[in-house]
Design a protein around this nucleic acid. Structure first.
Lengths: 347, 347
DNA sequence: CTGAAAGCGCTTACAG
DNA sequence: CTGAAAGCGCTTACAG
């Protein structure tokens, strides 16, 4: 169906090298010659074959998105992330393949060995990650979404947990809440042990609490509605004076909210709930809609691919990008009860 | 790094053809020769290069998943679907690339012209779909997730809307509800006009209503919480006797529920809400958790890829598969008010 | 500015 | 059972 370069060359009465030069615009070609070639390309419906090009140039222009197959919930914004990554690749003339694989090194080794991809975008990085070692050992160019423990020579983009947590705490402090409880994800699960986001968000919270002089209470909880509800119970039982809860656990947040409401606690009149790094779908599906800092999913996908492509093109590795979440107003946060707001801020 | 076939051949003292025969197990090879070759492959860490293979065999073993970039919400189960598709492809030795593209023909034409993929899995098919025409014209093997209007010679898998709606209605009838209101997605949006799922689900509902002798009330509503809430208002205002609502609109369902609750309507005591083709994340995030028929996302991805691969392998096109949703019990449905349940069923 | 030629890493008739 | 050779569709020094 589609014509080859050879056919175009014959039709235009030139060598295939010259056709290649105009297709890639890689060498000067006489105007008249170029015209003949372009005419032939259009007439014969020439489309450059990526496989031939890949073999000859040793660059496939395909990159892989590697993530854990047992998707512990990429969150509701998973598709948004992935789509944004694919479109960014596409705009640069690349393709994105999906490699949802186990966390161990064997499968990744096998896949990169096939020579299909020029580079890898690695997600859900653990602090010690066998996959990073595979990529290093095989000299596969790669970039990370997230960060491992050892950042030497790593190209990555990640969420700015410090900034996001700071913004979140500030939001609640601004409403007059003097202290707050943080609900985070469970690290009991082996695959979440030392899961970067939880570790970093909690560390940020503790640091900020120390700076602002309140006692940091941190509650771990699984990523389910049920666990969120249990967390609500525990907060009411163990820290009855709580006026604000900061949740970094998208799938527990709805349960936390309904757990409070079921106990007759009014949100936000009695207790404010602020959800951090949550999809808009989740925030708006509950009642009252959650005030939240939305996850910069699409932006991470875009920047992650961009960073990887820059490595592939041999340009200077881009500096690590850290993106904060963006406040999406809802109805689950409000002034601290007791009119403490104004007093607190001027104290 | 990775050895080539030529290097293996030299190390084993054979021709590269023979190496190819053992790698592909495509021709008989003497045991002793095979042993030498296998030893050399292991020693030199041979990994067959997919690009060379693709060029020579004219099969890339890459397939594309094509879906609308303006993702009108593949739903919360989007990642699950996509991951399942990628893993199914992987298990068969294929790779899955993501092509989130506009709905028009130009971009798809350009992409298939690159010769990167052996076939295409097409999603969100419209009743008249320019993309199907592109695939036909370019003789690109393809399979559909969903169905276009004209099914001649089409390989597809889809949700079984008839069976799912029947199950849903039966569930509510079994609880004593004599009639019900259906809330569906908005078809006002141009890109959703004649959107297969809405058309088919509504048709099934009307047919069943006629069979069972109740008046089918159908309400269109946008895919947002807000619209769901408005739908609740409208139901209470226009059809105050309603005891059961059947929602086929994942992102409106939470709003419908909270809209009822806000009006003091108890769910399920006063009104039952049954959500059809919804992700579990959504169903469980609201309070009360929704009784729902879950979307067979992962299964669709698996069967869709399988169907496409069968076409690629030149096997008989598999018969169209239609999958129903599965009932996931929640707390949003219950007996019809007025103790009608038992009476109704024996009447 | 253009072309002849080698080569990217494989597969596959064809011959023996 | 094995090998020599052509070829898949391109790119890229090299020469002129």
């Amino acid at each position: 169906m589609a014509a080859t370069m050879r056919e175009v060359a014959e039709a235009a009465g030139v060598s295939i090298a010259t056709v290649s030069f105009v297709v890639n615009n890689s060498k000067p070609v006489a105007p008249e010659t170029r015209r003949r070639i372009e005419e032939a390309m259009v007439r014969l419906q020439f489309r450059r074959n990526m496989v031939g090009r890949a073999l000859a140039s040793r660059r496939t222009r395909v990159v892989a998105l590697v993530y854990p197959a047992i998707e512990h919930k990429l969150g509701a914004s998973g598709m948004e992330f992935v789509t944004s990554a694919a479109r960014t690749a596409s705009a640069a003339g690349y393709h994105l393949v999906l490699w949802p694989i186990s966390n161990d090194a064997a499968e990744l080794t096998q896949l990169v060995g096939q020579g299909l991809v020029d580079g890898v975008l690695l997600m859900e990085v653990q602090l010690e990650d066998a996959r990073v070692e595979v990529l290093r050992a095989t000299r596969t160019p790669f970039a990370l979404i997230g960060r491992s423990g050892d950042l030497r020579d790593l190209v990555y983009v990640d969420i700015d947990f410090d900034a996001t947590m700071q913004d979140a705490v500030d939001h609640l402090r601004g409403l007059g809440h003097r202290s707050m409880v943080m609900v985070t994800g469970s690290q009991a699960d082996a695959s979440f042990r030392a899961y970067g986001p939880y570790v970093r968000a909690e560390a940020a919270f503790r640091r900020i609490a120390a700076e602002q002089g309140f006692e940091p209470v941190v509650l771990e909880c699984e990523q389910t509605t049920q666990s969120g509800r249990a967390a609500a119970e525990q907060i009411l039982a163990s820290w009855p004076g709580t006026t604000a809860v900061l949740v970094f656990n998208e799938f527990a947040a709805p349960g936390l909210l309904s757990g409070l409401l079921r106990r007759g606690v009014c949100v936000p009149q009695d207790v404010s709930v602020l959800s951090v790094l949550t999809s808009t779908e989740m925030s708006t599906s509950v009642d009252p809609p959650l005030t939240a800092f939305s996850s910069p999913g699409a932006e991470l996908g875009r920047l992650g691919v961009r960073a990887l492509l820059r490595v592939l093109e041999g340009e200077a590795a881009p500096p690590p990008a850290l993106l904060p979440g963006t406040l999406v107003p809802g109805s689950s946060t409000g002034p601290a009860p007791g009119g403490g707001s104004a007093r607190e801020r001027h104290a």
